[in-house]
């Protein structure tokens, strides 16, 4: 029975005051989060504790304090069952260059416990889904970064997991490769019905594909919310005019908007749709020449401003 597509929202994983201390650094500090179905982004700078969290959730590293659960199982004691139903794509390179993608993914499927024939079928299917065609028979050593990322994704998907952890899947990709990878991640969460926890240090990237975002910093939870709330709260537009930036700033402050002068541009918090109208009217009234008006991409820094 396939339940995952019919159950609307359920908790895929949760942590409760999860703490991980290494001899010289605290990687996770009292982290309490809950992740439901769909695509969830985990955002944080390098060293924020993203990889440590994944290792604990996979049951590979014990937590110092607190508890966690993945698919209703406890990583501390039921790591093996968790790893049967979870896929993991690491951030670093992890592919042997002398094997073909097909050989490698078949092998990884068997390591997940799939019988030989099933492993072959699943590997072929999965490689097709991630977009590797004829090149899958060639040794991985000759692949582009984009193709390698796809193989890494395929090995995490080949056993049809219920949840998949992706650690910086767009690392090293060019803008087009990024878009393709993000589309793929989104499809996994929606079409494939596999819940995704995707780590990134770029919030702008995640807001395009995630339903929810968790922001961590220094091992602490900074914020967890639906993506809509987050981008609304951090919606900032950047305004540039030829002359009279101060006049514009003064006028906007007068009418109750929040502005800040940043070099040659003005950053304006968008309260509601009428903010745009007020800006337009102010520019017209002051007879200024508008050079640039653009939506600033929300960055992690904006979240805790």
């Amino acid at each position: 029975m396939e339940l995952r597509s019919t159950v609307p929202i359920m908790t895929i994983l949760a942590t409760e005051a999860l703490t991980k201390r290494y001899p010289r650094v605290t990687a996770l500090d009292q982290l309490t989060v809950s992740v439901g179905t769909g695509v969830t982004g985990l955002v944080g700078a390098n060293g924020a504790g993203k990889s440590t969290l994944i290792k604990i959730l996979l049951g590979l590293v014990p937590a110092s304090e607190g508890s966690a659960q993945v698919l209703g199982l406890d990583p501390a004691t039921q790591g093996q069952e968790i790893r049967r139903s979870v896929g993991y794509m690491p951030e670093h390179d992890c592919l042997p260059p002398d094997q073909s993608a097909t050989e490698f993914v078949v092998h990884m499927a068997r390591m997940s416990g799939l019988p030989r024939t099933a492993a072959r079928e699943r590997a072929a299917d999965t490689l097709r889904h991630v977009g590797l065609q004829e090149e899958r028979y060639r040794p991985i050593g000759g692949y582009s970064t984009g193709m390698k990322q796809r193989v890494k994704l395929a090995q995490a998907l080949v056993h049809d997991p219920k949840v998949i952890f992706l650690d910086e899947p767009t690392n090293g990709l060019d803008p087009q490769g990024r878009d393709e990878m993000l589309r793929l991640v989104h499809r996994i969460g929606t079409e494939f019905g596999i819940s995704v926890l995707v780590c990134s240090h770029l919030l702008g990237e995640l807001e395009r594909i995630c339903d929810n975002v968790i922001v961590i910093e220094g091992g602490r939870l900074l914020r967890a919310s639906a993506i809509g709330e987050l981008t609304q709260a951090s919606q900032v537009i950047s305004v540039e005019v030829e002359e009279g930036l101060e006049k514009l700033a003064a006028r906007l402050t007068e009418v109750g908007e929040t502005v800040a002068v940043e070099g040659r541009a003005l950053s304006l918090q968008v309260r509601a749709d009428e903010t745009y109208d007020l800006l337009r009217d102010a520019v017209v009234d002051l007879e200024l020449n508008l050079v640039r008006l653009e939506q600033r991409h929300a960055r992690i820094e904006d979240v805790f401003r």
Binding site: R83, Y88, H92, C94, G113
Partner: peptide, 18 residues
């Protein structure tokens, strides 16, 4: 050597195998 050199071991460890 290849598994160590190309860091394939984390992929094994993310599976039921110990």
């Amino acid at each position: 050597a290849p598994d160590l050199r190309h860091r394939v071991i984390p992929l094994y460890m993310s599976r039921p195998i110990t």
